[in-house]
């Protein structure tokens, strides 16, 4: 059985998917969840389409700027309270949009989880696709539920390891996270 699939795979060994060290797994015996072949780079390179989900992602975090010459993200990512993150993206859409579109969103928790690279650690993301990415927490747009009626939290992902957890969403908390914006595409 293995011989059959070795034959299937071996011609492709000559054309590595990952062109940079940044996309390789930290542990080669943990299956990759977001191989570079799952992404199509769009336009000026500032966005990518994730084929398995049909979502388009900004390659830089909010606050950073895409540098097409170096294929990297310049500047420092901004931290936002949950509400400010939602309003910041609404402002982007209302003021000319980004990468030719005005329907960007803070990702819901399932969308955000779909770009976690579980064969990598610190950051747990494919850095060839998402360069200069942070190992800190990123917001989802999904508010959370707790039995104590503590409805003051929202779901987040720690991109140091890819853990999914909650953080305070009220504007008077100290929880200020990073944001990577997403949009839908037709056909998914």
């Amino acid at each position: 059985m293995k011989i059959r699939h070795t034959l299937y795979c071996s011609p492709l060994l000559l054309t590595p998917v990952f062109s940079a060290q940044a996309g390789e797994c930290d542990n080669a015996a943990v299956p990759a969840t977001t191989p570079g072949s799952d992404f199509e780079v769009l336009g000026d390179g500032s966005t990518v389409r994730h084929e398995p989900t049909g979502r388009v992602w900004a390659r830089c975090s909010l606050g950073q700027e895409w540098n097409a010459a170096t294929e990297s993200c310049d500047g420092t990512a901004d931290n936002f309270h949950w509400r400010d993150a939602l309003e910041e993206v609404a402002d982007i859409n209302a003021n000319g949009g980004f990468a030719g579109h005005s329907d960007w969103r803070v990702p819901n928790i399932n969308e955000l989880e779909s770009i976690v690279e579980r064969c990598k650690h610190a950051p747990a993301i494919n850095e060839e696709i998402f360069p200069d990415s942070s190992t800190y927490f990123y917001w989802s747009s999904t508010p959370s539920v707790a039995l104590s009626n503590d409805n003051t939290r929202a779901w987040q992902i720690n991109f140091q390891d890819g853990g999914v957890s909650m953080a305070g969403r009220a504007s008077d908390t100290f929880y200020e996270n990073l944001v990577r914006i997403v949009r839908d595409t037709d056909g998914q």
Binding site: K2, H5, T6, C9, L12, L13, L14, T15, P16, V17, F18, E24, C25, A28, A29, P31, S37
Partner: peptide, 8 residues
Amino acid sequence: LLAIAGCS
């Protein structure tokens, strides 16, 4: 399973 990073 074969842990081939270059396998597309």
